[in-house]
Amino acid sequence: MSDDEWWRDAPAKPVIRVEDGVRARSLRGEIARSWWSRRFLSVLESLGLSGRLDRGKRYARQGQVLSLSLSKSIVVGQVQGTRPEPYRVRIVARAFTDEQWEQVEQALAGQAVFLAKLLAGDMPDDIEAVFDGVGLRLFPDDRQDLSMDCTCPDWQVPCKHLAAACYLLAESFDTDPFEILAWRGRGRQELLDNLRGLRERSGPAPAEEREPPLSELLEEFWGPPTTPPAPVAQPAVAAPDALLDQLDALPVIVRGKPLVELLRPAYRAMVEESE
């Protein structure tokens, strides 16, 4: 056995367990819940990484990831493995340029439903079509758009440390879909501010919705009076004792008169006192 093959028969070292690491919320089955986080994982699988991703699912659920943070186009984290010093992982997506984002924002602002859903914190189902329409891909779909590296000695990409970070990244996308857009170079507040500004500058309202100028209103004010609308007939006021006529006749006779007739003066008197 050559010196460079010693590791093949070397016993596997136990993983150093972490007590307060970042732990996946899902304990079994699929980790991704929303369509956009599932889409992110499916893109990774389409790049031939599905078999390697599963290696990190246990790490993600055990809480071996010490930290994970996302900024413009890059995700960095630390994952505890078999060595005392945690491994550093990095997942990089190519950020779109400002000019490319301007095209995307113009397309998004042109459809109110997209703006409404984004303001509500939801990812529109067909938002990928908007990016496709300007020649872009929201999710990295080739190795030129996506790169990963880890400080561990494993030559495979992704290693289980990177795979664990990918699963936790998918869960973070579940919680906040805007992180996907930030990963591509546009943060939540900047995007929403730009979309609001585009909507406000989209031009005057249609002619039928615009208010007439003040000069036209003044001409109408000093013009001849218009014919007032015909008065609306007011409904007749019911007699105070009309309710008694709607009741079934009471089979009660008092001093030779039906009880209903004796009650009528009382109903009329109550109305007069209230007036």
Rank of each mutant, 00 (worst) to 15 (best):
W6T: 05
W7M: 08
V15N: 13
A24H: 06
L27F: 05
G29M: 12
R39S: 15
R39T: 09
L41G: 06
L41D: 02
L44T: 04
G48W: 02
R52D: 04
D54H: 14
K57V: 12
Y59N: 01
A60M: 01
A60E: 06
R61K: 13
V65L: 00
S67I: 08
I74L: 15
Q78G: 01
V79R: 09
Q80I: 04
R83T: 08
P84L: 06
P84R: 02
P86V: 06
P86C: 07
P86H: 12
I91E: 11
R94T: 02
D98F: 06
Q100D: 03
Q100N: 01
Q103A: 14
V104G: 01
A107R: 15
L108H: 01
L118W: 00
G121D: 09
D125P: 09
E128K: 03
V130A: 07
V130K: 06
V134K: 11
L136T: 07
R137N: 13
D142W: 08
D142C: 10
R143K: 07
Q144H: 14
T151Y: 03
P153N: 04
V157W: 04
P158Q: 01
E171S: 02
G185K: 01
R188H: 09
E190Q: 15
L195N: 03
R196S: 09
G197S: 05
E200N: 03
E200Y: 14
G203D: 04
P204T: 00
P212N: 04
L217F: 13
E220V: 15
T227D: 13
A230C: 09
V232F: 05
A236D: 15
A238F: 06
A239I: 02
P240S: 13
D241H: 10
L244F: 00
L244N: 06
D248T: 02
D248S: 07
A249S: 07
A249N: 13
K257R: 15
V260M: 09
R264A: 04
A266F: 15
E275H: 14
